[in-house]
Design a protein around this nucleic acid. Structure first.
Lengths: 292, 292
DNA sequence: GCCTTCGTGAAAGAAATTTACATTTCAGTG
DNA sequence: CACTGAAATGTAAATTTCTTTCACGAAGGC
């Protein structure tokens, strides 16, 4: 999949320069883009009034390897085009618009974040997380505190003792009780809260490693052993909540998934136990999300 | 092309419920989405270590007519997903793959959820939320409890007294202190926890309206005045965290945004005050996320 | 007018997909 | 613990689809 040439564009570009019968194929395909992907070579041939062979040559004229290749590219191009054209969208009501806006912003933010992720930092973080005996997630303020809780929740399920704290004093106190082998995971979008900086510094005194999830180049990023640095443009439409928290949680998902893969057997067992412990609480015996 | 069932989602949804060998096919395809569209049935069969026929059956299990049909749908879905995820990533390192998988699953889930959202329910919920004097977010278990907190956090910023509780006893107690004009927002993926059902029932006695964010057709959905019902396929790859929580938070985002628009002036003022209260804590005077 | 070149379809050939059937596996039962 | 039946799986044949070859015919240049 080296270069993706848009096949529809290609057809338009070669329009007029193709042999007569091949041109008829092009005309037919362009006029029936949506259905074309579902048709077989012979059906297209018949519909365009030419032979199978001509259809095949047409594909090759377009730069494809054959009909198969052509069909794949056409399907892709059409799918993408329809995407832009909004498919079965009914953007009538106000709430539909809202949904489109909010979800669109989320997806955009996720993309933005994905591009910024540094795989080395991610892997270094997973190394630390997978080896940690105990993980303390620290976040301050409504948003980051919740991300911290989410992190604790995720890792707790992997069998690592994990806890989250939002209180500055408690964070400092806890940090001073940690020991080598433990890990501090500090979360802050601003990267400057004194609570977190202090906690990380205190922990470091006792040989405790630290990871931060924060703004690029922030104080907190410098202070920690591994920094996952992400810049998220704040949306200034104050009626639209920021997508940054979602992005942070997504990153924690990545870390949790990575950690789980490092210790597959353990994780399987812990999840099984947690699942088992929840069974009596529910009447539905089917597979369910763990812990609601 | 009546209804476009996203084949990738379909695979995730059936994940774990497929016969063993077919599951292997699913795993292989999901792990090689970008290439899969270019492979022939026999190549996929060999790569997954099964017979051609099993691959074909796998396609039919997914609801396709056969491999051909499957391939077309897969190509479409992948093309659309790549569109969202901004082109073929660099799948070199393990962590890159992880990121692609986790983010891909998130985006897919968000899309699925978006399709399921019922605009009438959303608008009814926003009506209730915008008119509420006080909102109590209830969730049980690690995941839903966090979603509840997130909800409280969001609405608190809009100037509505909002609180979140994860403890069943406290929920019931609180529910009995609520009055007309207050609102209960119950969150549960299973939709069956007794704590939530009780709390909603208790609140109802005192004329308190309720909203639920839960599984389609669940008990909780029936018990509440407005139900936002969403089915999220649980990912059975236990090494991969579920995306459902993110989706729930996204929905709360939509509700919060909608509520904010109903009372623009008030919200602006509250946000201004909150922002002001945080300024002394930070040296950086620029626009920042509110409350980290 | 004849030769060359290009475009075309028919049909053979190759490849891939689908179906039918036999074998294996596994859960439940006596 | 063997037996039974249903479900899952692989093998191989049948079918369909795609690709290539080849021969014919038309258009244009010498």
């Amino acid at each position: 999949m080296n270069k993706v040439i848009d096949i529809i564009l290609q057809m338009r570009r070669l329009d007029g320069e193709l042999p007569k019968r091949e041109q008829r194929v092009a005309d037919f395909v362009l006029a029936n883009l949506e259905q074309a992907a579902y048709l077989r070579q012979s059906e297209i041939a018949r519909a365009a009034g030419v032979s199978d062979a001509t259809v095949n040559r047409f594909c090759i004229s377009l730069g494809c390897e054959g009909f198969r290749d052509f069909k794949i590219r056409l399907t892709q191009s059409v799918a993408v085009s329809l995407q832009y054209l909004g498919g079965p969208g009914n953007d009538n009501s106000v709430s539909d618009q809202l949904v489109v806006q909010v979800f669109g912003a989320l997806v955009d933010t996720l993309n933005l974040v994905r591009q910024q992720l540094d795989s080395e930092a991610i892997e270094a973080a997973i190394d630390l997380l997978a080896g940690a005996r105990r993980i303390a997630f620290f976040g301050v303020g409504g948003g980051s505190a919740n991300v911290a809780r989410e992190g604790a929740n995720r890792f707790f399920r992997l069998g690592v003792p994990a806890e989250a704290h939002a209180d500055g004093y408690f964070q400092r106190m806890l940090a001073s009780t940690l020991d080598k082998g433990d890990l501090v995971f500090a979360i802050s979008q601003s990267g400057s809260p004194a609570e977190l900086l202090d906690s990380v510094a205190i922990a470091k005194q006792y040989g405790v490693k630290s990871i931060s999830l924060t703004k690029r180049g922030s104080e907190l990023a410098h202070a920690t052993d591994v920094a996952i640095e992400i810049d998220i443009p704040e949306d200034h439409d104050i009626y639209k909540p920021s997508a940054s928290r979602l992005a942070y949680i997504a990153i924690i998902d990545v870390l949790a998934a990575g950690t789980a893969r490092r210790r597959p057997e353990q994780v399987k067992e812990y999840l099984r136990r947690i699942r088992t412990s929840l069974v009596p609480l529910s009447s539905d015996p089917g597979p369910k999300p763990i812990g609601d």
